[in-house]
Amino acid sequence: MEHWFTDIAQALVNWLMGLGLSAGWADFVLLIVQWLCIVMIVTINVIILIWLERKVSGFIQLRLGPNRLGPYGAFQTIADAIKLLTKEDIIPSRTDKWIFMTAPLFFIVVSVMLYAVIPMGDGMQVVDFNVGLLYFISIGSLSTICLLMAGWGSNNKWSMLGAMRAVAQMISYEIPLAISLLGVVMIAGSLRLSDIVVAQGNIWFVLLQPIAFITYFIAATAELNRGPFDMPEAEQELTAGAYTEYTGMRWALFFLAEYTNLVAVSALCATMFFGGWQGPGLPSWLWIIIKTYLIMLVFMWMKWTFPRIRMDHLMSFSWKILLPVSLANLVLTGFGLEFFKWMGWW
């Protein structure tokens, strides 16, 4: 069970080479297969996640959540997806058409790209960059542009306000997000995500870097535009913020992308702080799924409990609290490391 997926990949490569393909071409085909798998994982995950979110919010709010279609309403999302696919795709006449139409596509593409570096099990990584973390953070920040495109292209004041909020918020929170992760990088001594997982063989970094974990978690919530930081959408204020003018599948793509981001960020959180795919007994890919889902449940719990923060508080919180705290954490980690080395414990 442990090596199911790696074995399948190996078998595929062997079979292709048996057909007479060179090793380079076989790897290329494998890459395409892996990408297809990721798209599948993303889609299935989103279907499960939307159902889960509705169920969780239902239980938090003393409701049942979806319960008609399938066991415990499990097929509700599929029915919703069909509904969304068959809806009319309205493009308002005053919009900036190309920007308006391509924004959701870019958004989903950017989100899927995040999965390239996430170690989804022992040896289960599409690309094992030596700067994997850097890649993750920089690709993650691209989604800001997509939201700005959506807001600008819609030619609607609510959308524009939502987009401006998104840009301000995501740029401000990227800095504490990156700096909080640097503490982990210093201890692990590598930006390669698989190295960071291996470095947690003895102890999870959440225990060594609790402050970094908290700042990462808060900044990640803001990055994901989830409650209590869902400023760009902010239903009660901006009607639907940057998504106001979108309908049907284009609108659904934004949600697809948001949930995709949620999984990616939670998986990164598990990788950086909770030992990644490592764990006793169960196969590695199951461990990362369990950890990711547990973290996502916490995200949902937060979203369905807290009110929305105010924009200016949000900004000052980032620059006046999160950033200094994460910087202090970085300095502390540096001193700690030197101290450990000096004592000969490292």
Partner: peptide
């Protein structure tokens, strides 16, 4: 509560 974004408050 719901106007401030706390959906759950309304339900209670």
């Amino acid at each position: 509560a719901i106007d401030l974004g706390a959906t759950t408050g309304l339900i209670y």
